[in-house]
Design a protein around this nucleic acid. Structure first.
Length: 288
DNA sequence: TTCTTTGTTCCGGA
DNA sequence: GTCCGGAACAAAGA
């Protein structure tokens, strides 16, 4: 599930593989992903050259010359594949498993010069790719309401304290809220609260200063590590069968229901519950 | 057939 | 008005 680190990893591999290239052709195999696709508009990228690739929260932004950009959200299962001129798969996509079934979900193919292809594959079709004027990105509905990036200076103790005043929602829902901090999803929020030893059901306004410091610190720590491991999963990526990203093996609570708690000397088992209709994993003994 | 998955939005109720 | 959270939605696989 692509959250900030996975999107960052994808961003970096796109940067390494398709920056500076000119699009020759776009093949669109579906009428809709998350939204109806405006095929004619999307094809305006033909003839345009990629000038840079950036990320905001979980959005990928591919910038072209002539004030054109693509805004991309990977949804649940969106991924990019790059084929180079030798038809060889580039080491680009995190936890991508190669098998014949997957090609039927190749929804959009961008052809570049030199026979380089960028393929957008998405089993669930909850992701999207939209053409947008570069100047309009920051005022777009997707971007304008996003809270600060977790690594930004703005996301600090003072901001946190001010924001949670009178906030009655659970600390888990708070961290999931993209208006508060952008880029975290269910998986990393579960992990962060476990590392911070905080019960996910606690009310936000009851979180102490010391706990806030832990939360901020662990968010940055785990995101950084996952980006690094995503990088290493790319390094290990093999086109004969694929391989899951190392970061998935680093989860301590997510999807670990019934496993023994990771904390030393804790004999408790990881519990699963639901908060705001989202799977929530925690240790009853360690998280207070 | 039903349940699950996620991010996002919508809406009723507090 | 504002906030909260449950439900709905998208598609497909188990």
């Amino acid at each position: 599930m692509p959250e900030l680190p996975e999107v960052e990893v994808v961003k970096r591999s796109l940067e390494n593989n398709i920056n500076d290239l000119v699009i020759k052709k776009v093949i669109i195999n579906t009428n809709k992903l998350r939204y109806i696709i405006n095929k004619k508009k999307l094809k305006e990228v033909v003839g345009r050259k990629i000038t840079s690739i950036t990320r905001r929260s979980k959005y990928l932004l591919i910038h072209f010359d002539k004030n054109i950009s693509l805004i991309v959200h990977l949804g649940m299962t969106g991924k990019f594949l790059i084929l180079n001129k030798k038809k060889k798969l580039e080491k680009t996509s995190f936890y991508y498993k190669l098998n014949s079934k997957d090609t039927k979900h190749d929804h959009i193919v961008f052809n570049f010069e030199n026979n380089v292809k960028l393929i957008y594959n998405d089993v669930r079709k909850f992701g999207f790719i939209k053409l947008i004027k570069t100047n309009d990105i920051n005022s777009s509905n997707h971007i304008q309401f996003l809270g600060p990036e977790p690594f930004s200076k703005k996301f600090n103790l003072t901001y946190f304290l001010k924001y949670i005043r009178n906030k009655k929602k659970t600390v888990k829902d708070l961290l999931m809220d993209q208006k508060f901090v952008s880029g975290l999803g269910n998986i990393y929020v579960n992990e962060v609260l476990y590392l911070s030893k905080i019960d996910p059901k606690r009310k936000s306004f009851r979180i102490t200063t010391i706990e806030i410091k832990k939360i901020i610190s662990f968010i940055r720590q785990i995101l950084k590590k996952s980006i690094k491991d995503g990088g290493s999963s790319i390094k290990d990526f093999s086109d004969g069968g694929g391989r899951s990203g190392v970061f998935q093996q680093n989860f301590k609570v997510y999807n670990k229901e019934g496993d023994k708690c990771f904390t030393k000397n804790c004999k408790e088992f990881i519990k699963k519950t639901s908060i705001s209709n989202r799977s929530t994993f925690y240790c009853r003994r360690c998280q207070k």
